[in-house]
Each structure stands twice: as C-alpha cells, then as structure tokens.
Design a protein around this nucleic acid. Sequence first.
DNA 1: TATTCGAGTGAACACATGTTTACTCGACAA
DNA 2: TTGTCGAGTAAACATGTGTTCACTCGAATA
Lengths: 221, 221
Amino acid sequence: MAKSQTKPAKADAVSRSSRVELKERTRLRLIEAALSLIGQGRGYSSLSLREITREAGVVPAAFYRHFRDLDELGLALVEMGGVTLRHLLREARRDGLSPTDMLRTSVLIYKRYVEERSLVFRFLAGERGGGSPVIRQAIRTEESHFASEMAQDLRALGTLPDLSSNALHMICGLVVTTMLNAASDILDLPKSRPKQEQELVDNFVHQLRVVFLGARFWRER
Amino acid sequence: MAKSQTKPAKADAVSRSSRVELKERTRLRLIEAALSLIGQGRGYSSLSLREITREAGVVPAAFYRHFRDLDELGLALVEMGGVTLRHLLREARRDGLSPTDMLRTSVLIYKRYVEERSLVFRFLAGERGGGSPVIRQAIRTEESHFASEMAQDLRALGTLPDLSSNALHMICGLVVTTMLNAASDILDLPKSRPKQEQELVDNFVHQLRVVFLGARFWRER
DNA sequence: TATTCGAGTGAACACATGTTTACTCGACAA
DNA sequence: TTGTCGAGTAAACATGTGTTCACTCGAATA
C-alpha cells in the first residue's frame, strides 16, 4: 500500500499539528520573545535565557531543545534579518524607480519598511557594532551579501555603467552603512515630531545623493 | 602667615594624595575597569556592577560613592570618547594635510589612532547603535559635535568653499558615520593579516574619496 | 495495538546579581 | 589635639541566573 512506504510521501493537510510543526512553532515563539524584549528597549546582548523563555511562555529547560545557547538564537535572528534585507531589495526591484526624485521616494519606502519591521532592524542596528563577536561577524557577512545584491541590481538597471564591479561593491557598502545608520535614527525618532522627522529624511536623502554623485564621477586608479 | 589663609593657595606638591585626589583615583579605576572588560570582548551593556568593581579591586558598595548606576558610568565613558574624538581632530589640525594622497595618509593616521585607543573606540562603536537609550543618545550628541568641528575645520582650510554650512555639516555627518563604521572593522581585524588589512584601508580610503568627490559636485537644491 | 521517542515540565543545584546597612579608620579643618 | 566627615569595607538580603536531571504524556511509528 502506498501509505506504508518508508518515506511518508508528503505529510498532507491532515497532520495539522504534527510534531515537527509544533516544535517549529515554539522555536518561533522563542525568537519572537527575544525580539519582543528588544522592542521594549533592551539590547539583545543583555537578555537572559530565562527572560526569553518566560516571555515565550515556556520553561527554561525547553530552550535547549532548540538552541545550544543565546548565541545560537542570535544567529537565528541574524538570518531573519538577512531575509528581511533580501525582501527589501526584492520589493525595490519590483517597484522600479521613477527617474525624478527616485532617491527621495526610495528613502520614504525604506523608512516605512524599517518602521514596520522595527524589531528586526533594532536587533541589526544594535548588535552590528557591539554584542557577541560571532553575532557581529554574522551580521557583517549579511551586510556584505546585501551590498553585493544591490550592486548586481544597479548593474542590471544600467545605473553607473562605467564602474567596475569592485568599485560598485565598495559604493554599495557605503550605501548600506548609511542605510543601517539611518535605520537606527529612524527607530529612535520620537513619534509625532514631523519637523524632526522631515529633517532626518532630508539628511538621509542628501547623504545618499552625495554618495551617488561621487559614484558618478568616480574614476578607477 | 600666607599658609594659613582660607584658600590654600594652590594645593602644592605636598598634598600628594589628598582625599579628593584619592577619590578621583578610584573613580578612574572604575572607568578603566569597565574599559578593560570591554577590551576582553564583552559589550558594555552586558557588564555587571559587581564585575566592574571586582576588576577595579574595590567592594561593590563602593561603586555608589561615584556613580548612581551603570548608566552614569556609561556617560562618563561617553565623555571620555568625546574627548578622544576632539583630540583626534586637534592632531589632524596640527599636522596639516599634504595635498597629494592626503586622504590615504589621514586614514592611516586614523587607523593608528583607533588601534592605540582601541578600548574607547570599542565602546563607542559598540554602544552607538545598541545598549541603553540614554547612552546611545549621548554618543549621538558627541558625534554631532564632532561633525560640527570637522565642518568648521574644513571651512577654515578652504576645502569645499562653495558649500553652505548645512551641506557641509551633513557631509561631515556622513564622514563620521563612515569613520566609526571603519573603526569597528579595524578593531575586528585579525592581527598579522596584511592583505586583509590592506583591503580594509583601501576600501575606507575609496569610500571617503567617493564622499568628497560627491561633495565637490554638490549643488544646493 | 503496542512501543518508541522527544518536546516540554518541574524541581533542584550552585552561584551571581543589585542594593542596604552599620562599620572603620585616616585625612582634614577647627 | 580633637572631632567631623566621607571613601572604602564587610556582611547580609532577596532575587535572578544557567544548567542538570528524572519525569510525563501524546503523536508518530512499527
């Protein structure tokens, strides 16, 4: 009979709450608990295992069924951050860019994006420079990938056609730095302060404009 | 007699270890203990009061004679960071800048400077994005002052004479971001990896070159 | 249907933590 | 010389911490 084969075909709709699904569910609960605590102003590197399990509604010992230690949870958060960044790029790619004021609209879209995923960006911005070396390094790798993809996209769009791949990557690195720095600023914006908000956006736009202006006149040497 | 006046003239060489001097001394011990722990790879926001006093060779309760809590110690570190940055600028000002390859030499000087004061820069780079909100904000203020001074210096040197003060400040902000980001990279360099080191320096130089190139072609509005 | 298997439990452990309290004891001003 | 004043001490406190262990109990398998 087909059912009793060694490989259970596909695990169809019946297994609504299979074991592995349930495990994955609480794994997610742990991740989200950590993010939620970050959202309450705490830095990831100052969170404790017990705090996280408490927030996740699970007993401390259960943590070890999913992660060896806090660093491993942190790496899961980094990966989530990486996915978020790739998704951002994918959206930007889809939207295309109107030639006029395209920088400004990109910035506004980015701002919204950051605000809607504030927890992940808080984590990235917060652990990027401090925290555990292994997490910091993982974030850096993610940033570099992000920069590479961005470079590829710019190339495909025909922007800055005269630049070498190396130069393009280096410039995208600069853009990424600026973006993540701006994310930090965006997240610390006091709400309902439109003036301050406007200033921040302007500053961000202008900085990117300077970078792309410089890129246009860049000559290899 | 001149000695018994109400105001003790000058606190001369005799009062080698006056009370206030001794207090200041252990205050410094606490600050340096925190820095030392940072140097061992820990982020400031994950340090504990007891850890710090232990490292400083002092009993936990003594901490409160100097700081209300860890945030207050953190602010002292921020101020120390501010002093460090101002000092950097003062040195750069003194050295003047040879017109050819001035960017590259500046970068090398900066790199050396960061390495020699690695602990302070570790602290700044680490708490800039994460950590306690009050510390983060204090660092941001310090950065802004640094950017302003830099703008003033550039103005005095006649660099970028066509830029408005606002534009100049905005560009210096970009430079500062890039510098602190690079500091983070410099501090994480594995030692005796000259190739990697060279790449990092090149990248840093190129990024700054792009920024200044963009600045030269910047037109308001 | 009977058996295995492993995610989550609850309790216990050996410490580490922040803060308070009453204290010592030496520099300093009177 | 005497008395004050305050930096640093020692001990105690109530909690919080990471990790371990034997356990339950229900879904997955055979």
